[in-house]
Computed example of a mutant assay.
Amino acid sequence: MSITRRQALIAGSALAGASLLPERLLAQSKQVSLAFGPVSPVYAIGMIAELKGYFKDEGLDSKLITGNAGTFGRQTLAAGQALFAHGDASHPLQLGARGKPCKILLATEMVCSYANIMVRQDLYDSGINSVEKLADYKRPDGAKPIVAATAIGSGTWVFGTYVFEARGLGDRVNWVAGGGPNTMFPSLQTKQFDAIMAPPSWIVEVEKKGFGRTIYDTSKPGVFEKDFGGALPVLVIYTLQDTVEQDKALVQAYVNAIYRAMAFVKAAPLAEVQALVTPKYFSGIDPDAVSAELGFDKSTWAYDGVIDKPAFERGAKPWYRKGTDIPETKYEDVVDMSFLQAARAKYK
């Protein structure tokens, strides 16, 4: 009988040295992993669950696996190198279209914090202060403006391309993969990119460095609603359907820990949350940048994790378009709120 990588991950290390450990410790030794990328405050909820000890409380030995773009979580989950992923809601839909059906377990963001668009400082100074004006710009060689998402197919790409397409400007820009801040920022400064997609923390850093300015900002009231019709699942925690079917107790424990982290963030002052995550994860990032990103969700989200059917259906605008490779998907086929409901009932 062969054992798949996923079955081995679910089993964890509990089998190793089983005869040497008491039963109570064995019950607490299930290994789990959460994949996402890059290391940014937008993905802080898993970090908070770890630092507050919620994973341990639920009998889990959790590991965070990070990459350079949002697509890393999707790729790592698909490869069987992680049990859970944190990323754009389009990613589990993309995996389902590729024969790896997923279940979305809860949302961690309902207004997109990374649909913001920044242009080079010199372009902004020349009067390019809107999406429309950026689309009209021509590079010195006559080429279309270059806009960088973290990766082609990433959440920044899904939302960014839609912003242009919604204005009839989809064919007026060239999209490239820019990676994380270590490549995005200098490429904007050196004019390799004319614009970049940016979460709030990047906006703070880029503007402080004088590399660029924001021309599309979803933190401003009405901006996201105007283009997308209202709140929709943006960032989600998801797993393969196989994992749900093979170990419901493990999935429940994981959702419990994440839900408790959300409840903590909702109740705690922003400064307390920032003080918790900064030493281990964000010590090299401008504190104002970390605060901006953590504060975005404080002002736009209820921290309940809920995805209802109307919100999911609003996702049709950015998801089901040419180039996304996402077929129309029924809410019931991909969203499973049962684990979240159980967590909310347990931790009222």
Rank of each mutant, 00 (worst) to 15 (best):
M1G: 09
R5I: 09
A8D: 12
L9E: 12
S13V: 09
S13A: 15
L15I: 10
A18C: 09
S19P: 01
L21A: 13
E23L: 09
Q28P: 02
Q31G: 12
Q31E: 12
F36W: 02
P38L: 03
S40P: 05
S40G: 06
S40C: 15
V42T: 13
A44F: 10
I45F: 14
M47Y: 09
K52V: 05
Y54L: 14
K56G: 11
L60N: 08
Q75T: 09
L77W: 01
G80F: 03
H86A: 04
G96D: 04
A97N: 00
A97V: 01
L105T: 05
L105H: 05
A107I: 08
S113T: 06
V119S: 08
V119L: 06
V119I: 07
R120T: 12
D122A: 14
G127V: 03
D136S: 14
D136Y: 00
Y137Q: 01
R139A: 02
G142P: 07
T150Q: 03
G153W: 00
F164N: 07
G168S: 08
R172F: 08
V173G: 03
G178K: 08
F185A: 11
P186N: 11
S187N: 15
Q189V: 11
K191H: 15
I196W: 01
M197N: 12
A198N: 14
I203A: 10
E207F: 02
K209F: 06
K209N: 09
F211I: 14
R213S: 15
P221D: 13
P221M: 04
G230Q: 11
A231Q: 15
L232Q: 10
L232V: 04
V234T: 06
D247E: 07
K248F: 05
A253E: 08
V255E: 14
Y259K: 12
L270G: 08
L270C: 13
L270R: 14
E272A: 11
Q274C: 10
A275Q: 14
L276M: 11
T278A: 10
P279K: 05
Y281V: 05
D286W: 00
D286G: 12
E293N: 07
E293R: 00
D297Y: 12
T300Q: 09
A302Q: 14
Y303M: 06
K309Q: 15
G315Q: 01
R321C: 02
K322N: 11
T324P: 03
P327F: 02
T329I: 03
E332F: 00
D336I: 06
M337V: 10
S338W: 07
L340G: 08
Q341K: 14
A343C: 06
R344K: 15
R344F: 10
R344P: 05
Y347C: 05
